[in-house]
């Protein structure tokens, strides 16, 4: 392990310890009853039980399935739309007003109507993720295309690149830092959408459903354990997917400074 990564691990460890200590003080302070603010001594065993009986894994898989499918669909739809907007004035004029109206509507505000359309279950949650994730892809890709350095375009055109090839070989990689930023934002919004959607629209499975269901039985320890899992999954994706993706591409190419980990 290099000195740099040892130091960043130490930093992460320190922040976890501090956060845990703050929670313990709060949990044992008596502001709420211990049933509502369970200490780590209760949360960790709850997590252990859920892991041991396999339910946590299944809930997680359901949630991941919904979020990843919704995200993938959003990327497939959003990136090309953003590209078209960046490239053609007519596409920009047509899409931008729609995006400006739809994008500020919180995804959760759509839950009731999506339940009416898609019923309870996977489809409503996936549609919700799709709604939440598409706009970050569109807006960031659009910005990315517009901020491609003009000199790359000039140099490429001087060497005979035109239309399709110019787009594929210059605009696409040139816009990549923004597309990755869009993916990050889309992912963050997707978590909100999927957990919120599952609370209301899911039946029996999903991390959001667990949280909501636990409320019925006052299982604060299960709720908090699940929140912890969601946080850890977010961290995992940031480290293993987004940072890696960035380091292998735009970081390697010197187009962005990557996080030191």
């Amino acid at each position: 392990m290099s000195r740099g990564s040892a130091r960043s691990l130490l930093g992460a460890l320190a922040s976890v310890v501090v956060a845990a200590a703050v929670w313990e003080v709060f949990a044992r302070s008596g502001v709420f009853s211990t049933a509502l603010t369970p200490s780590l001594a209760a949360i960790v065993p709850a997590l252990g039980r859920m892991l041991a009986d396999g339910t946590l894994l299944l809930h997680t898989l359901y949630t991941l399935y919904r979020i990843l499918l919704g995200l993938a669909l959003a990327a497939v739809i959003g990136i090309p739309i953003g590209m078209l907007m960046g490239r053609f004035g007519w596409a920009e004029r047509f899409v931008l007003p729609l995006v400006s109206v739809l994008s500020p509507i919180p995804s959760l505000a759509w839950v009731p109507i999506f339940i009416l359309w898609f019923g309870l279950g996977d489809a409503a949650s996936i549609a919700l993720v799709l709604y939440a994730a598409t706009f970050p892809f569109i807006l960031n890709t659009w910005t990315g295309v517009r901020s491609v350095n003009r000199i790359w375009i000039r140099a490429a055109e001087a060497m005979g690149a035109e239309r399709g090839r110019l787009f594929r070989k210059i605009v696409l990689p040139g816009a990549l830092p923004f597309v990755i930023a869009g993916a990050r934002q889309a992912f963050a919004r997707s978590w909100i959408a999927v957990v919120g959607g599952e609370m209301i629209a899911a039946t029996n499975w999903g991390l959001g459903w667990v949280i909501f269901d636990s409320k019925e039985y006052l299982n604060a320890d299960v709720m908090l354990a699940t929140l912890l899992v969601i946080g850890l999954l977010g961290l995992g994706f940031e480290r293993l997917v987004f940072q890696l993706m960035e380091r292998r591409t735009v970081g390697r190419w010197g187009m962005v400074r990557t996080a030191r980990t």
């Binding site: 000199i151 000039r154 140099a155 001087a158 060497m159 187009m255």
Partner: peptide, 18 residues
């Protein structure tokens, strides 16, 4: 434009970073 001419600009950024 045409491939009968090669062009070198002042800006170092003219190379494709990727």
């Amino acid at each position: 434009k045409g491939l009968d001419r090669g062009i070198v600009f002042q800006d170092f950024a003219q190379l494709f970073p990727w």
